[in-house]
Amino acid sequence: MNAQNFINALPFAQALAMRLDDLGDGHAEISMPWDARFVGDPATGVIHGGAVSALMDTCGGAAVLSVPGATTTATIDLRIDYMRAATPGARLVAKAECYHVTRNVAFVRATAHDGGDTPLASATGAFTFAAKDATP
């Protein structure tokens, strides 16, 4: 399954209206719209951290699947640093890269942006990695 299909086939990615904007060779870019249903703090209209996590996790998974030969992946762990609040109303864009891949594990870094000068969040994660065997 390629990563574009992977995104389309994820019910929760669809529930958050995620869109695959760029993909290839261990990199992915996925975005999602601001939506009143995703708000965490009604006093500010800021998107819930959990929704940002979901975007970063999906983007990390897509980046892993874009590594040539990758077949399946699952998140082992994910740490998110929330540097600042997301701007209410702004589309969120996540960018993820696999900075190292072993036979079994892909190490991923990701950032989330909303059009401001600095990222609003960054993440690091380890994902299980399985690739097609080169020999049958």
């Binding site: 019910p11 529930a15 819930h48 929704a51 979901a54 996790d57």
Partner: peptide
């Protein structure tokens, strides 16, 4: 059903799990 991340297993999306724990 909308919480599913991997329809083949099927399994709940990791982002849902992270969100649930943060909430």
């Amino acid at each position: 059903d909308k919480l599913i991340g991997n329809p083949l297993l099927p399994a709940i999306h990791g982002g849902v799990i992270a969100s649930f724990l943060e909430v």
